[in-house]
């Protein structure tokens, strides 16, 4: 029998918990800063996870490069997630819960993801990228695609790649700031 995708994700998450020594991570929804904006699809804690993951994924390699907060990657993701099909949205939000509460445990890190120092966050995300659970690797790729969509959509990031942007509606001075 083939398991529907959602059930497989849940099974994988559960397997992660068992592997971590039976620690049951209770999804906490308190103790997160209010995002200071109206959210359309995610809750404040999910927004915080998106923000922290985006900061790590889009960490600038040199001075003068806009970071994920400057580009408002998490805000973009919130709006994008609102337009996803309910099934995909549920999978993605489940993955955010996994990243926040289970992933650190499976990596032997004591705190939830958003409370970890950046080096530990990088370790946790690398572990997710290389997870032995294929579906979690797939989830990582999906999350990466979403975050980079939010980042590289913005003309302020295009000079990183030396990309001169669309020809239509191109401003006279070009797209770069």
């Amino acid at each position: 029998m083939k398991l529907p995708r959602r059930r497989v994700v849940k099974a994988a998450v559960a397997a992660g918990l068992v592997a971590a020594g039976g620690v049951v991570a209770v999804v906490r929804t308190r103790g997160y800063e209010a995002p200071g904006r109206a959210l359309v699809a995610v809750s404040p804690w999910q927004y915080a996870v998106l923000q922290h993951v985006a900061r790590r994924f889009c960490a600038p390699d040199r001075d003068g490069v806009p970071d994920a907060d400057a580009i408002d990657v998490a805000g973009f993701c919130d709006r994008w997630i609102a337009e996803m099909s309910p099934v995909t949205r549920k999978d993605l939000l489940g993955l955010l819960g996994y990243v926040e509460h289970v992933l650190p445990v499976t990596c032997g890190l004591g705190r939830r993801f958003t409370a970890l120092p950046v080096e530990a966050q990088d370790r946790a995300l690398s572990a997710l990228e290389r997870s032995s659970v294929d579906l979690l690797r797939g989830g990582f790729q999906g999350l990466k695609a979403l975050i980079f969509l939010g980042y590289y959509r913005d003309p302020r990031t295009w000079s990183i790649a030396g990309y001169d942007g669309p020809l239509v509606r191109r401003p006279a001075r070009g797209w770069w700031p």
């Binding site: 994924f57 889009c58 960490a59 600038p60 390699d61 990088d122 990228e129 990183i160 790649a161």
Partner: peptide, 10 residues
């Protein structure tokens, strides 16, 4: 991802 990834994007 992160700095290494951005360096590749260059």
């Amino acid at each position: 991802f992160g700095r290494d990834h951005m360096a590749r994007m260059r």
